[in-house]
Design a protein around this nucleic acid. Structure first.
Length: 901
RNA sequence: GGGCCUGUAGCUCAGUUGGUUAGAGCAUGCGCUUGAUAAGCGCAGGGUCAUAGGUUCGAGUCCUAUCAGGCCCA
């Protein structure tokens, strides 16, 4: 028995089965970067239509998290696919550099720094993480102008922030007003939430009577009752809030007519020791709206308002409102047109404004007992006891924090609201509910507080005259911007008032304060500082793409600033993605108890960037995106599927060149695959255009796994391996496989950036696949007739395998399908068509012989072939042994051509 | 508590304007092949479409409530 294996045209390729992505990807990345691939792509598209995806800047802090990776990979899918669709799609990555988290870390590391030192350390900190994140983004295969990203700390960018502020001023959008902030009396500075520590503290909890101002009706001679643990805020009281839907009882408490929420009546009676003697009237909270009380010790009215934040956990269901001393109070004050009083100085001492001369200059927590004593004296105190609670303290000075209203700058959102809502409707939101979300936030947002008492940020370019009045002058602001453009914003902190007054042409005695701009202004004006500045970009952008939290964040800040500057939105389409969640559907916590890996690097190092990218393509990114170790294992399996299909196609194309392409010998199945391929090309192009990367994955997965691997490649093995190398039938199949390979590899390229380029190289291309465009569907190759015919064959194939071959294998009648002789009975109407293709059908079923009969219902029977097996092609055929070689006729003719080669 | 969403096999997802026994890939089990071999092929099992009501001749698909989850507010 001779060994005919050497006479076969077996698949052959050096394209490795084992991906080894963790070693291979970095090497490929180095080659791309050495060759300047991104620049080369841009040069080749110099004259192509422009498509701008504008990168929302991540915060320059920490490693690239799975959420950040998801975001950047989705952006890269868009940029790469638009490029391959024929656009010039530049990508300019950016970083958001200023802000509290960095300043906080820097200050925590080394105390007692000057503002200039804090800023220097903060910049170094930001730059360090920009480098880290840049390396990690590049490692993910994201293409872009990584050498020239935009940074919000660049002097040019900072100058544009200041110029934008100047334009807001010019349009009359900026005003100054008081707003309560967390204030450290020890450090004399505003604090951020993150700088607050909670500690136990004992304060007086008091019940205070506010006499009703009503002259008649049930409330005449009655009193409202509030409960508070901050007596020192009473001088700033301007209102009493009740819950609109709660029930309030006007009762006789030991002879006093007092109003208390029904739910709190018993608790109040117990704590005050006042006996409840009977119900006089009942009100729903909203019925009390418009009533009024007299301030217990100041000649002032205290209005009754309604608020949903009133709870029944403690107190009386009536909340003392001091808009200058609380967040809820402030908002309630805004909604009801109440004044914001805050008679407290930087050191936490009551000022003259408090209205009681004896208290002026007292530290508020010391003043508590004076207030209580005074209330008792005038008969307004119903009860007092010690109350232990968690109270916010300054993390630096350890002193208790107070809420205190300080002068802040605001942007008048009312002037922007209508045009912003109009612009929202002119923008395309994906998914569509994004429109409702941002419209909801724009409709309800109060004026935008844009000043912060921070150090690591862009200075608020406002000077104050000798009387302390702010100078809001666009011309002065422009001068600041010009200085900053040349020397950076550190100048603001390095030079003194006199120097600055002189530099911007203001009289001596002009002062500055160390306020900075809200960092949302920084990133919010990127359309101005980046889209309009970079010559390769354009305003407005085609696409912004960020996570859903940015409806309130960057999408909104960018919209507002753009409305203020341009009257239109800075984007045409806004795409949002969900947050990355644990595969159990739980959110990924940043807390210490959450032990599972959440850094992109972990998965890249373990599986490779292409696996991570493939994962992104399999999920529905508009919802929460599940991930986890086993999700990645599954995706890695899918990756193997793609890789092995590319590999077998390459291997079957060994020795084939495009010059040999011909469809002359094409059979039904070749025409069918070619037709299917056109549909896949069409589907993928449409899916990429619609940002539906899952659609691309589905189409390619179905095509590669089912159509190619399980059907086409399996069925055509016989002809590829056993036919003469240049038989028309074999060449036609190779022609089709070549078409499949070049199309699939290019369609896969935006997702499997590394693997597609690797395979492309093994196919003999000197240049990167990323310089190519997507294949175009060829309508002349679409053939519904062939598709329908093979659909019919596939149904019969299922029948044959299920009812004949599989049972025969299980029963050990046959081992491989080629040993089978199948008799297939089909309805007469079907018979003629099938009979004409009997040989192709036998090949399609991968059996040696097929007999077709007519019957009412389809039926299949199987017998082991009685013909001898050809030693070369393993088929059982009647002509085996007819020639001296002992082979089948086809193999007998093929062997000489093969051995000759 | 409010706003915007989501909930289909173990996992990731399809399910056209409501219309026959709800599909795919992966995973699992069984088997074949050893000429894609740390590969390939076949067959099989697996879903009361979150739950409960309702509209309809008919609902995974429409409505209401509940539960669970996410983001943003409070």
């Amino acid at each position: 028995m001779s060994d005919y294996k050497t006479t076969l045209n077996l698949p052959k390729t050096d394209f490795p089965m084992k991906a080894g992505l963790t070693e291979r990807e970095p090497a490929m990345l180095a080659r791309w970067e050495a060759a300047g691939l991104y620049g080369e792509i841009q040069r080749r598209r110099a004259d192509a239509p422009l498509f701008v995806l504008h990168d929302g800047p991540p915060f320059a802090n920490g490693d690239v998290h799975m959420g950040t990776a998801l975001n950047k990979v989705l952006k890269d899918f868009i940029v790469k696919s638009r490029t391959m669709l024929g656009f010039r799609a530049p990508f300019v990555p950016g970083w958001d550099c200023h802000g509290l988290p960095i300043e906080f870390k820097v200050v925590k590391e080394s105390r007692g720094l000057s503002p200039v030192e804090i800023r220097q350390k903060s910049e170094a900190y930001a730059r360090q993480f920009i480098d880290t994140q840049r390396r990690q983004f590049r490692r993910l295969g994201v293409f872009g102008d990584w050498e020239n990203p935009y940074l919000t700390l660049d002097p040019g960018y900072e100058a544009d922030i200041i110029r934008s502020f100047g334009r807001f001023v010019e349009r009359g959008l900026v005003y100054q007003s008081q707003k309560p902030v967390l204030w450290s009396t020890g450090a004399q500075t505003a604090l951020a939430e993150a700088e607050v520590e909670y500690a136990k503290r004992t304060d007086p909890a008091i019940y205070v009577k506010f006499a009703s101002a009503a002259a008649e009706g049930p409330l005449a001679d009655a009193s409202f009752v509030i409960w508070t643990t901050t007596p020192w805020t009473l001088p700033a009281n301007v209102a009493i809030a009740v819950h609109p839907r709660a029930e309030y009882v006007l009762g006789d408490f030991g002879g006093q007519k007092l109003l208390v929420a029904r739910e709190r009546r018993e608790a109040f009676a117990a704590e005050s020791g006042l006996e409840f003697l009977g119900e006089l009237a009942v009100f729903r909270g909203e019925e009390l709206l418009g009533a009024s009380a007299r301030h217990p010790f100041l000649p002032r009215e205290s209005r009754v308002i309604t608020a949903d934040f009133v709870t029944m956990d403690s107190g009386t269901g009536q909340v003392h409102i001091a808009p200058g001393h609380g967040k809820d109070d402030y908002l309630a004050g805004q909604q009801n047109g109440l004044p914001t009083l805050s008679p407290v100085d930087d050191h936490g001492r009551l000022t003259e404004e408090c209205g009681v001369a004896a208290w002026v200059g007292k530290y508020v927590f010391d003043a508590n007992k004076d207030v209580v004593a005074h209330l008792r004296e005038i008969g307004a105190l119903l009860a007092a006891h010690d109350y232990v609670h968690d109270y916010p303290h300054c993390w630096r000075s350890k002193t208790p924090v107070v809420f205190r209203a300080v002068e802040q700058f605001f942007i008048r959102v009312d002037d922007l609201r209508a045009p912003a809502l109009a612009a929202i409707d002119e923008t395309r939101w994906l998914p569509t509910w994004g429109r409702n979300r941002i419209a909801g936030t724009v409709e309800s947002r109060p004026d935008w507080c844009i000043s912060r008492q921070r150090t690591w940020g862009v200075p608020l370019p406002v000077f104050y005259d000798a009387a302390g009045k702010p100078i809001l002058d666009p011309a002065v602001i422009e001068k600041v911007a010009n200085l900053v453009a040349e020397q950076g914003t550190n100048l603001w902190f390095e030079r003194d008032d006199a120097w600055w007054a002189d530099a911007v042409g203001l009289p001596a005695g002009t002062t500055r304060r160390n306020d900075t701009l809200d960092v949302w202004i920084d990133s919010g004006v990127s359309h101005e500082a980046v889209l309009r500045r970079r010559p390769e970009l354009r305003f407005p952008a085609d696409v912004y793409l960020e996570a859903t939290d940015q409806h309130r964040g960057w999408f909104q800040s960018s919209l507002m600033t753009s409305i203020a500057l341009n009257d239109v939105a800075p984007y045409r389409t806004v795409i949002t993605h969900g947050f990355v969640v644990d595969k159990d559907g739980k959110k990924i916590s940043k807390s210490a108890e959450y032990k599972k890996p959440t850094h992109a690097e972990h998965f890249v190092n373990q599986y490779g960037a292409d696996i991570l990218r493939l994962w992104v393509s399999t999920v529905n990114y508009t919802d929460e995106v599940p991930f986890g170790e086993d999700v990645f294992k599954q995706v890695a399996e899918r990756y193997r599927g793609f890789r092995n299909v590319l590999r077998i196609l390459l291997a079957n194309l060994d020795g084939f060149s495009a010059a040999q392409a011909s469809l002359d010998g094409a059979t039904t199945i070749d025409r069918w695959v070619l037709s299917r391929l056109q549909a896949v090309v069409e589907k993928c192009r449409a899916a990429y255009e619609a940002y539906d990367f899952r659609g691309v994955f589905e189409a390619l997965n179905q095509f590669c796994t089912v159509d190619l691997s399980a059907i086409y490649v399996d069925v055509t093995k016989d002809r590829l391996y056993c036919d003469a190398a240049d038989s028309p039938r074999r060449r036609a199949t190779q022609t089709v496989m070549h078409a499949c390979f070049t199309a699939v590899t290019r369609l896969l390229a935006p997702i499997l950036v590394f693997t597609a380029d690797e395979a492309w190289g093994y196919a003999g291309h000197a240049q990167s696949v990323h310089l190519e465009t997507f294949p175009e569907p060829d309508a002349t190759l679409r053939d519904p007739e062939f598709e329908a015919r093979v659909e019919e064959w596939l149904k019969l194939r299922g029948l044959v395998y299920q009812q004949a071959i599989e049972p025969a294998r299980q029963a050990r009648t046959i081992a491989k399908s080629l040993e089978a002789r199948v008799t297939l009975a089909v309805p007469a109407a079907q018979l003629d068509g099938l009979a004409a293709a009997r040989a192709e059908l036998a090949e399609f079923f991968i059996i040696s012989d097929l007999e077709l009969l007519a019957a009412e219902a389809p039926a299949v029977t199987l017998a082991k072939s009685t013909d001898a097996a050809c030693e070369r092609c393993w088929r059982h055929l009647p002509d085996v042994g007819a020639t001296a070689s002992g082979l089948c006729g086809r193999c007998a003719t093929a062997v000489p051509t093969c051995t000759a080669a």
